[in-house]
Structures are given as C-alpha cells and as structure tokens.
Amino acid sequence: MKKTLAITLTLGVTFGATATLAAAIDPETDRQQMVDFFKAKNPKIAMDAYVNGAYIYSADAMAQWEAAEEFPPYLDAIDSGEQLYTADKAVFEKCFGTDVTKIRPKYPMFDEATQKVVTLESSINKCRTDAGLKPYKLKEGDIANVSGYLAYQARGAKIDVKIESEGARKAYEDGRKSYITPTGQFGLSCAKCHTYNAGRNARADTLSPNIGHTSHFPVFRAGAQKLTTLHHRYLGCHENMRAEPFEAQSDQYKNLEFFQAYVSNGLEINGPGYRK
C-alpha cells in the first residue's frame, strides 16, 4: 500500500508540474512513472495487455471484442488500403522502402532537419505531394485505410520512439503539457480521463488507459463503420470536452501523439483496432 501510494503521489507531482518545473523532465523517468502508476493501480493486468485498450477492464467486454476479431469488420478497409498503396507503389517505395512491415514502426518520429514530429499519416501525404500526387483528406477515408493497411502489416513489432535531442525532448514536453492541461468548458484534461480515471465509466463508455493508446490506431468504429485516425479521435475528445479542437496533423496533435507513443514504448503494434 505504501509503495502504491508513493508511486501515485510521485505521478501526481509529475503531472501537476508547472511550466518551469517541466524543463527538468526526463522522458524516460516520466514514462516509467506512468508504467508504475498503472501497475500499482491494476496489478493483475499484464503490461502487454494494455494494447487492447478499455477492453482489459472487463472480461465480458474482452470476450465480445475477441469474438468480433474472429471476423474483423475492418478487413475491407485494409483491402482498400492495400489497393491504394499498390496503385502508387513505386512512389511509396521511394519514400518508405520495399518492406511494408517496417514502415509503421518508424512513426511517430522527430525530424531533426525540420525540428518537428513526423507522423505516419503526414509522411504518407508528403510522399504523395512530393511526387505530384494529390494528398489524401485527413482524419478518415483513404488516409486511414492506407495507415490501417501499414499498421496491419506491422503487427507484433514494438513501439520504439526515440528521444535523442533537445528538440525531441521539447516536442515530448509539449505533447505532455497538452495531455495534462485542463481545457474546455468542463475543465477536463486527457490525464483526468485516461490516467487517473482509466477503467471507470463515462456514461456508457469505459475510459481507456493512456498506456498502449497509440498501438491500435487507426481504429474501426462500429458506429461509424469505418476506420478513423488517431488525430480524428483527438478532435472528438476535444469536442466532447467542449474545447476548441486543433486541426488533424497540427503540431499540437503530432506532439501529443509523440508523447503518448513514447510512454507506450515496448508494447506491440496491433492496429487497426475495433471499437464500438
């Protein structure tokens, strides 16, 4: 109990840090505190299970999800993504190489040349525009299907986000700040729901944990019957919080993805995921 309390208090200090204190943040220490917090909060849940999101909190929900995964409803979207990728294969291979299993694990990453975070979806569109092709629309549709195809090909690979420069650390801290800062009419933060209250219900939905959150995107939403990207989910969350959302693939959302992916280092990619 004392160990659990100590971890909780330590995390509380870390996530309540002011901008001045944030300058001293070590990302790896920060990540380990997050992992320790979730281990202490739910000691019976194996860390590698966190890739399954909110389903880990209910045996019944997990059974229903496993049944849905026997005949995944997102297979048509993956097929569409493969067709789109194959149609412009020569272009994509110049950008990403010939091994499609190695593309998704590279992202998100910090580009030292531009001093910005680069996501898979932003790289897909840059690859297209550099070759004179039209970019895909962001959030859903073709961009989500191609991303989903590449995620499916990379299943089992480990998330391994690198922070090896001051610029990358600042991007991590910016994403972390977005995660912990209350916003919107309800005064909520991402951390309020997805760290401190993960596993609890918000209306009819169980709040998913921050750990592993990026592992299963893009996600097939049963209600929408299509794949949607992680940044589309960020937009939806901000709207639910009655906050002004940022644009998909904005620096704010890229940095938030960078932060979330880094704290999930070591977990397996298992996208695309299925969610109700």
Rank of each mutant, 00 (worst) to 15 (best):
R233L: 14
D130I: 02
V35C: 07
F96C: 11
G148E: 02
R31V: 02
G141E: 00
T181P: 10
P182L: 09
A171S: 07
A87W: 00
D99K: 04
G53C: 06
H238D: 15
E257C: 07
F96N: 11
A23P: 12
M241R: 05
L133C: 09
V35Y: 01
S147P: 10
T98R: 12
L133I: 03
A61S: 11
V219R: 04
K134D: 11
I56H: 04
S178D: 11
Y55R: 12
M62N: 12
G273P: 05
C237F: 00
A191R: 04
K3Y: 14
Q83M: 08
G167K: 04
A67C: 04
A171D: 06
G141T: 01
N42M: 08
R128L: 11
E69P: 13
Y136S: 03
Y107M: 09
K192F: 14
H231N: 06
N265I: 01
Y196K: 03
P218S: 02
A23D: 15
V118L: 09
G167W: 00
E93F: 05
A191M: 06
A168Q: 00
D88P: 08
E70R: 15
E28V: 13
G236V: 01
E82Y: 05
K89P: 13
T101Y: 07
V118S: 10
D99I: 04
Q252C: 04
V263W: 02
Y152R: 02
T10G: 15
N255V: 01
T29C: 15
P43V: 02
D174F: 13
D79T: 06
P182E: 08
V161S: 03
K276F: 00
I103T: 07
A131G: 11
Y55M: 05
A198G: 06
S208N: 13
Q64T: 02
Y234A: 07
K254L: 07
K170Y: 00
L235K: 15
K158Y: 14
D48W: 06
H213C: 08
A63M: 09
F15K: 13
M62V: 01
I25P: 09
A113S: 12
C127T: 03
M109G: 09
R242H: 13
E257K: 06
T114K: 03
S58Y: 00
A224E: 11
F258M: 05
D99N: 10
A168L: 02
H194W: 00
Y55G: 09
W65L: 14
L21M: 12
K2D: 13
G156V: 01
I45E: 05
K137D: 15
I124G: 10
I211Q: 09
